[in-house]
Design a protein around this nucleic acid. Structure first.
Lengths: 147, 147
DNA sequence: TATTGTTATACTCTATAACTATA
DNA sequence: TATAGTTATAGAGTATAACAATA
């Protein structure tokens, strides 16, 4: 055992810790979304639409699921008036999904509530948050599957 | 801007990064489980049974879902011969779930494969892994809802 | 021919409510 | 009465396969 790493964790331990924290974060997100009448998946989808319109196909890639699922997810968002389908002017096969004003407003509220329910992160001081951010940022590209 | 935290991340940025890494980890887990004929939820359940038997009710608490769901999850694991229900000797209402030999064997393989598919973690050297572990460990109790 | 989105289908996970058998 | 597990039900997410419209 070296002096620099007194308690070197097993890779498995670190993976499980990552899983535990990730699960907790997801459940928090789902709870906040639910208070606004959205499922976690619907909220996640909506959060992809705060900027420019996104074709269905690309949405499937970003949400890492089969394209056929997007139809139903967007259907349910559209039924709530939070999203709109627009045929692409350049390729009439593709449909761009656009968040409505209400969709954007709801999603902003969800994000704000997530941020204000930040009690867990206050466990760490600002510099520790910066360190965590840096480490996770380096981890992310290696974990996300490129497509 | 202080000298010690040159790039202080927003809480929202950190939350989203945590979500991204958590999602990637979950998808990796699901992919490995799938290669062994299990859903992510089934694998997660089985991983709770490597030690002592666990009553259905406690399983529901640990998996953070309604008790009624456990019936189906355990049914499917039992149908694959990976798990067994045993009536508690001390309270005939409760059923303890026990992993069979094959259940333990499969779960050990899943965990080993998760560990060997650790490429992402190798992005960080050993001392960085220790720092990450420490930070996440402090975050966990604040994020997980006590019950 | 290839691609985009949709439909049909089947399975799993999820919560709610009502039920049973124990305690 | 209260608790453990189950069943019935309904909804949401998931993948596969087949399809129409468009490129």
């Amino acid at each position: 055992m070296t002096a620099t790493t007194p308690n070197a964790p097993t890779k498995l331990q670190l993976l499980e810790l990552l899983a535990a924290v990730g699960t907790a974060q997801w459940q928090d997100f789902a709870a906040v979304a639910s208070r606004h009448g959205l499922t976690a998946m619907q909220a996640k989808t909506l959060s992809q639409l705060l900027g420019t319109p996104v074709p269905m196909r690309r949405l499937a890639q970003r949400l890492v699921c089969d394209a056929s699922n997007i139809t139903g997810i967007v259907d349910r968002l559209e039924a709530q008036g939070l999203v709109r389908r627009e045929v692409s002017p350049t390729d009439r096969r593709v449909k761009n999904v656009v968040a409505t004003e209400e969709g954007v407003a709801i999603m902003r509220r969800v994000r704000a509530e997530m941020e204000s329910t930040h009690a867990a992160l206050d466990t760490l001081d600002e510099s520790e948050q910066a360190v965590l951010h840096g480490l996770l940022q380096r981890l992310r590209p290696a974990m996300e599957h490129q497509d």
